[in-house]
Design a protein around this nucleic acid. Structure first.
Lengths: 154, 154
DNA sequence: CAAAATAGTGAGCATGACTCACGGTGTGGT
DNA sequence: ACCACACCGTGAGTCATGCTCACTATTTTG
């Protein structure tokens, strides 16, 4: 029956999630980073100097969590805290030179990773994959994600 | 150029990872579970009553970590510790009735989730997707996963 | 039978997430 | 102009997950 093939495909997706997660975590550890702290650096990359409050909203975590992430990134020299020019309550988080260079190196590494995954794939298969993936993403986003219960993770 | 399409596809994959992770975590929280504890339950489901040492090997974590996971699952009533019949050093971790029912419910939920993702997808697109996904998984597994540097996670 | 290996756990550490409470600052209503 | 309220960041404390080191109890091995 068809159902079995669907379950097998879901198992493949779950394996992909695990492999990609593990790979990212290892790569980031080599660079002296964690996944959460990297999220924060990417937000800085997108939006430039940002208050901790805005970072909390963008990363969907509490303000207290951002304090901890910035503490860590400041200790290891990737970002620095600057007073906000007009609001003395707020602090602006900005890249240090080292932080900026690290993020640029990560962007380059990401391109290499994409090349590694797709470079030798026939165009037809690549297109078929992205078409299916796009549809799956639409459903995941659309269903609100809150009702379904995959119940497991591999 | 083609490279841009590859990067876009990688971004899709990273979004998928995030969405699936978040959805799983939420679903499990509703059931009173966490990802790691669920891994342990699935191992019990596959292999029946198991020593903590074997669970540690299966889950690729330290023995000490298994102690903590079993502590939590025992407190919330999903598993119980039984003395090993022949080795008085070891303990066998077994399902409680509640634990067994919970895992069966999760399996059912996973089937619903697969149905939700794939049910209305044309067979041709489904096949194209799984073909591409299979090739990507082969590369991820094969490359050892340790050399590449995606550097980012969304 | 003594020495070495194994099974589980206590203690202690780090990360990342949360809440609650609190001090300092900005803003709006009267 | 002022006071009450809202907002920003952080200290303190909690929980889950991982780790190592040290220890006891037991089994296996030489």
């Amino acid at each position: 029956m068809i159902g079995d093939r669907h379950i097998a495909a879901l198992d493949q997706i779950l394996e992909l999630v695990v492999l990609v997660n593990d790979d990212m975590t290892r790569s980031l550890a080599r660079a002296g980073l964690t996944v959460s702290r990297t999220h924060l650096l990417w937000e800085l990359r997108r939006h430039g100097p940002t208050t901790q409050r805005d970072l909390a909203a963008a990363l969907k975590v509490s303000a207290r969590t951002v304090t901890g992430l910035v503490d860590g990134l400041e200790t290891t020299g990737f970002v620095s805290r600057q007073p906000h020019p007009t609001d003395r309550r707020a602090t602006l988080v900005t890249f240090t030179e080292r932080g900026r260079q690290t993020v640029e190196a990560m962007e380059h590494g990401q391109q290499e990773f994409a090349h590694l995954l797709f470079a030798e794939m026939p165009a037809e298969r690549f297109d078929g994959f992205t078409a299916g993936l796009g549809e799956i993403l639409d459903r995941l986003r659309g269903i609100g994600l809150a009702q379904s219960q995959p119940g497991d993770d591999r």
